[in-house]
Nucleic acid binder design. Structure first.
Lengths: 251, 251
DNA sequence: CGGTATGTTGAACACTATCAATCGGGGTGG
DNA sequence: CCACCCCGATTGATAGTGTTCAACATACCG
């Protein structure tokens, strides 16, 4: 019998959470760690391509990405798709849905993804008894807002080449902070279609734009993914200065 | 001696807040009202065109719009501007800056605006003692995120005509909920340059696109503003379904 | 009355989309 | 093992959307 694609049994205790070990993330106080450990009801592992949350649905769960890559998107009736943001280890998924009922966007895995599962019912306890964690949740929502602001500026006002450079520099910086490259040179696991749907461009024009970045030795398009060769060069083209977060909160 | 442009004296007690009277907004519990009343340290009135918050600055204050229209934007070094969202009565301004230190966007008034002023130092007390208000703050941040998601979809994937229709329907619906039209037919106080900077289009093409909407009797461009003649027609063109919020929280 | 801000219009041009065809790698079934 | 198919990437040609430039109209303001 084949191994199941998804498992629900708990595997990584919060006390040994690998994310807390990274300098990018902040430490918990002991009582907070206890609560979070209890808040977490399980773990979910999904394959690349799996839809984790669907627009229009009501989910009883919240997730934090423990490993892997994903993305958030919305679609129009005729199939046009807009990718809103990418999810990496430490990112919270489904807060919007938990607070406002219905999901207004979908979430899909780009690679095999492991998720910590939380019950949205326990959010009330969190707000009542753990004000610092409540503050962190607001912080996380505000941080997402900040990223969306930047994306909006990019799509609205940057040229195709600038947009592409911004996106790849952005993904590179975030992935590095989340330790997704683990020392080794790992590609960003996206297709050119994902890039196109993020930047608001057609797939053909995206291809030609990425080729220009390749000719300038800033990136190399690998098999089903992108290698960043010169992130500072990308940031220079895009005019983006990057983030400077340290000790980021997460749940 | 001329009247000062801005006043700092308190004028509208929270107990008589005109926003709470609107069906769109939720009611406070008595102790919450007490706290908010104390949280509010003053009121600020500014003229149209005033910059309320500047990108890169550190503000000690948070604001809620009590009356008037404003907008949030970011700029690139060479002057390209992207409007991110519009502010109307009940909207909170500066939460991002309060949580993360530096403002990453600017805020400007479109009309005379009155603001309730809050001290960001008291946010800690709010989180420690008023979990429901803390929850509301997260809700407000998530709501902003939802709007940005929708804007991103619009700019990234809708045509110029669809984008313009979406924007005007969106502004109309929000303004109506915030009672900005007060029964009388009041124009949305924006210039075509604002529309262009919101939609990611040039001013010339924006003008031609708005003209098309005018020819279809969906809007009428007035002096320095826009009248909505057929909001359902606009929603139909854009493919946007609108929001369905009732009893929205605000601070 | 000149100056500024906003809105309008036409023409030429550039960027991006669409269409169509091809290529290469990986997986599958014969 | 090989033919076949599918997906993602690539490329050229053509069409179309949106930009830029430039000129002009209108209203408001000191």
């Amino acid at each position: 019998m084949a191994a199941p694609k998804t498992r629900n049994n708990r595997q990584t205790p919060c006390e040994q959470c690998p994310l807390r070990a990274l300098p990018h993330f902040r430490e918990f106080k002991p009582d907070e760690l206890d609560f979070v450990s209890n808040f977490k009801t399980g773990e979910l592992a999904v394959d690349a391509g799996t839809t984790i949350l669907v627009e229009g649905s009501h989910s009883a769960h919240l997730f934090t990405v423990l490993s892997g890559w994903g993305f958030r998107y919305k679609m129009l009736d005729d199939g046009r798709r807009q990718i809103l943001n990418y999810m990496m280890p430490g990112d919270l998924i489904g807060l919007q849905g938990s607070l406002m009922g219905e999901m207004q966007h979908s979430v899909e895995a780009l690679s095999p993804v492991t998720l910590c599962v939380f019950e949205r019912d326990k959010l009330g306890t969190l707000y009542r008894n753990y004000p610092d964690l409540a503050y962190d949740l607001t912080w996380i929502a505000a941080q997402e807002e900040r990223i969306l602001d930047e994306n909006l500026l990019s799509i609205g006002r940057r040229s195709a080449l600038e947009r592409a450079a911004y996106l790849l520099a952005f993904l590179y910086q975030r992935a590095k902070a989340s330790n997704l490259f683990k020392g080794a040179r790992v590609s960003i696991p996206i297709t050119q279609q994902h890039v196109a749907d993020t930047l608001g461009l057609s797939i053909v024009h995206t291809n030609k734009t990425l080729k220009k970045l390749g000719e300038r030795k800033l990136i190399r398009w690998a098999d089903r993914g992108c290698d960043i060769l010169d992130d500072e060069g990308l940031m220079k083209i895009s005019g983006w200065e990057g983030y400077h977060d340290k000790n980021r909160p997460f749940i």
